[in-house]
Simulated scan of single mutants.
Amino acid sequence: MRHALVTAALAPLLLWQGRHVRRVTPRLPEAAGPRAGTTGHGPPLRLLVLGDSAAAGVGVARQSEALTGCLLAELAPHHTLHWRLLAHIGDDLAQTAQRLPALAAERFDVAVLSIGVNDVTGRTPPARWARAYADLLAQLRRDHGVRLSVLTPVPPMHLFPALPQPLRWTLGQGARRLNHALATLAQRTPGCALLAAPFPLDDPGLMAPDGFHPGARANLLWAQAAAAAIRRYHQASHDRTPATP
């Protein structure tokens, strides 16, 4: 309630600040490089990276420095990876879901998701966002065979250097509200792993030059956290498998 009241009272200032940020913030491209392929050695693992500009590698020059490239480097020594990146600048949850038909009948074991910043800026209500997120996860399981969905929390937007106050505080509160809904969803949904905040954005060296996206070091920490979640899932699955007599 307090967040809604403050946002309403500050609406003219927040609108002006939002327009100003869009005008002065450098517009970085998505990282260059392939968005699908096969790499690595070992048991096969089919991997999908799905979501927004952070997942698409905005903030670094090459996909090898982005989340997907760093994740491949973490997992390739242990798996033959058949992987796909489906992520785009500006996509919110609804737009991400609308892109799933591009996958056709492709099957994946693991999906790593980065969704939420554009829902914060677009003021998607948390309850509606959580319902749509649950639908997306169900579609990934039903249509694409995903057994593990690794959920990335919405980053701490109150720490984004590109954002002035009070816009920074307001968006940070919005991110917290979505993350609360995401934590509840993850607890209720089988086959989900919610990452802890994967990098401390109060370290300016982890941010891209635009002050809004993760840089190469942050992507490495993010990928390491996601890879650890995937390894824990596979170890737990192995432990549950009965031994052959």
Rank of each mutant, 00 (worst) to 15 (best):
D202H: 09
N179M: 03
M157V: 04
L194V: 12
G215M: 07
Y133H: 13
A196I: 00
Q139F: 00
L178V: 06
M207W: 15
R217G: 15
H213G: 11
L148V: 11
A216L: 02
D119N: 08
M157L: 11
G191V: 14
N179I: 00
A138N: 08
T184C: 07
P204Y: 00
L194M: 10
F199K: 00
D202G: 11
L151Y: 07
L171W: 13
T152D: 01
P200I: 00
F199Q: 03
A208W: 04
L140F: 11
D119H: 05
L194S: 14
A208K: 08
T189S: 09
R177G: 03
A208N: 08
L182T: 13
L195D: 08
G205Q: 13
R142S: 13
L148F: 14
N219V: 01
R176Q: 15
V120R: 09
A197D: 09
Q165M: 05
D143N: 12
R147Y: 04
T189R: 11
H213K: 14
P156E: 10
P166Y: 12
L163P: 14
F160Q: 05
G172A: 03
L167R: 15
A138P: 03
P198R: 03
G172P: 02
G172M: 00
R188L: 13
P204S: 12
D143Y: 06
S149Q: 10
P164Q: 08
A181K: 03
H144M: 01
R217N: 10
L182Y: 00
A138I: 00
V154D: 02
P190M: 14
L159R: 15
L151V: 14
F160H: 07
T189K: 13
A162C: 10
L185K: 05
R176V: 13
R128Q: 15
R217Q: 14
H180M: 03
P161I: 02
R217Y: 06
A162F: 08
A181P: 02
P200N: 12
L220Q: 10
P198T: 06
P126V: 01
A208Q: 08
C192M: 15
D135W: 05
L182W: 01
P125D: 08
P209C: 04
G174N: 10
P161G: 12
P204A: 10
W169N: 08
Q165G: 07
L159Q: 13
A134P: 07
R168Y: 06
L201K: 00
G191C: 15
C192E: 09
Q187D: 10
L185C: 07
L167T: 12
L171D: 03
A183N: 02
G122M: 01
L206M: 04
F212P: 03
A181R: 04
H180Q: 11
P214V: 05
